[in-house]
Design a protein around this nucleic acid. Structure first.
Lengths: 347, 347
DNA sequence: ATGAAAGCGCTAACAG
DNA sequence: CTGTTAGCGCTTTCAT
């Protein structure tokens, strides 16, 4: 009787319809779907079968006007980056089965992070995980005081949001020691341009760059920094420029694996190999371990970062934690074949 | 006066607050933010400055209860696949500046497509783009009759949703001709398992597999199909199995590039090269053109598919089109170095 | 051109 | 344990 099979598009049933079908009040239905306290087994039974037979699904829009949306937003600055993909996977896996739905909002083209974060808040997500290298700490503090917020890849000593990051200084230091140990002196660095909004020492790329420059200076070598966009083709362009110069670097430390893959592309295209110029990345994306790529890099445990971020967020959402937590993951160097001892010829 | 700088978290302003601040009615404010007909310049001016000074942002949840949510949902079955990333990029770029926000909902782990599509509808998105190889045509027809819907990678002759796909039979045919032309006879195929819910001839992977099997049979060769999961490690496992057998295939046609990269990993790890066994993929992800990978594959223009899907969706959303459109993109073979003429030794 | 009022589908007191 | 009653912040008739 509740089942109609007419072809017409019928309005989706509301809570009122369920209440009517079950012969109970709206409030009762609400309690059942929320597993709230105070429903008799009989009531639950009636309501559930009404829900079933009507195919009722609660409107999240309506729910979120009073209660929660059971939705977690994840803002990313870029789609074409396997490291971010890895992080998102960790987050998605961690969130699975929690009753919350993950929605990913990419900041694409000219749109920086803040408008996307706003868009998420406008949609009343219960919490936000973000990778937002473009947004100022002040702006984030304000956001964090009105919605549970976890930032990935930020070294902010924030009061109103959590952070999950890796020790970029340590990671970059390991890279430099590795290269120095191989005898390299003319080491170039490719970095991703930061934002004027954000202090230098808060962002992975600027910390890596700074660590690089200091390590070079400490040995009396001349730092050579190339600023690049974040995409593989841009890493390729940077690599092409460096490897077409009159005097080549013996090694390139790319700010991340995506750029390193681009640099490898340039190196291979110019007929060069690891014996001519070493290349190091940062992130340890899955591709880095591929034997045909074999990229020396720094593992910063993307999946784990993603899942940690969700854990922290859920603490804020469900347990109501309000004190900020800042997690720092210890990075590990992965030495592979893209780096070689410097040769006599190239020295 | 409207600007307060207390540290306390103040409630975000509602339309009522704006109306009060501007000294007009709620309805007037609503008209202004919707650019609706019938607002005097003076009114618009007053309202806009009130919005500005209060930092007002409309609640999408509330709006979507009567009107629209200005949100487009994109469901994907997998995060770790560069082809999907490419498609999403095309979609994101096409949607940029349209006033709609893109939200991506991944179907992760055990969760198949349908629950995620439901979650999107529960959140009242204005339209959905989906890559859902697991959902039956009937289910999709029902969904499509209640919300604008575009499916990628489906060959369904659907009445209530649009499709954007490539000619998989043609693409697979080109692969087989290429391999036959190089003298290959023992060609193995790695496919992604389909769903019992969906007829064989509607899905890219099953069409490619069928085309492969027919092409082999037509030449009197024995088809050898390995079914695999969709992840790179699974492609690797399949490759490892095939390449550790007592009699090796001379070529492997992988169902997509992700699997092919996995197969390449196995090949390289076993100390084999294209001279021993050729490997072909399908998709032409960016990595395929990398000189260190150089994967022969079929270009199915992911970015273009994504942008086409959004165009079609917007036609349904804004222009109210209701007649289904089915777009088929012509694939192109990209011959690279992962395939070689069969050698005397391996023949 | 503007505003008052009803209502979208739900949750949250509060009564009974 | 159950139902009634207000809203949540918008959009939408319908008057004015």
């Amino acid at each position: 009787m509740a089942v109609e099979s007419s072809g017409a598009t019928r309005k989706r049933p509301s809570m009122d319809d369920v209440a009517a079908e079950a012969g109970v009040s709206k409030a009762a239905v609400s309690k059942v779907i929320r597993n709230a306290y105070g429903v008799s087994p009989a009531m639950r039974e009636k309501v559930e079968s009404a829900i079933e037979s009507l195919g009722y699904r609660p409107s999240i829009s309506a729910r979120s006007m009073r209660g929660s949306s059971f939705t977690v937003g994840f803002e990313i600055p870029q789609l074409a980056n396997d490291f971010f993909t890895q992080v998102m996977q960790g987050a998605a896996d961690e969130l699975a089965g929690s009753g919350y739905q993950l929605i990913i909002a990419p900041a694409v083209g000219e749109v920086k992070g803040a408008p996307v974060l706003d868009a998420l808040v406008d949609r009343r997500v219960d919490g936000i995980v973000a990778i937002s290298p473009e947004v100022s700490p002040g702006w984030l503090e304000r956001l964090g005081s009105s919605v549970p917020l976890v930032l990935l890849g930020r070294h902010d000593a924030a009061a109103h949001y959590d952070t999950v990051t890796n020790d970029d200084a340590r990671g970059a230091q390991m890279v430099m020691e590795h290269l120095f140990g191989l005898g390299h002196r003319r080491i170039a660095h490719v970095t991703v341009g930061g934002s004027a909004e954000v202090p230098e020492d808060l962002l992975p790329h600027t910390i890596r760059r700074k660590t690089y420059a200091e390590a070079m200076a400490a040995r009396g070598f001349v730092p050579a920094v190339t600023t690049s966009g974040p995409l593989e083709p841009e890493g390729y362009a940077a690599g092409l420029k460096l490897l077409s110069a009159s005097v080549l670097p013996t090694a390139i430390f790319a700010g991340n694996d995506t750029l390193a893959i681009g640099a490898l592309r340039a190196r291979a295209e110019l007929g060069l190999s690891a014996f001519d110029v070493s290349i190091v990345g940062y992130d340890n994306i899955d591709l880095a371990s591929h034997p045909m790529m074999s990229l020396t890099t720094v593992d910063q445990f993307g999946r784990q970062s993603g899942s940690t971020a969700i854990k922290l967020l859920l603490e804020r959402i469900t347990a109501g934690r309000t004190q900020a937590v800042h997690e720092m993951i210890a990075p590990e160097l992965r030495v592979r074949e893209s780096t070689r001892p410097v040769t006599v010829a190239s020295r």
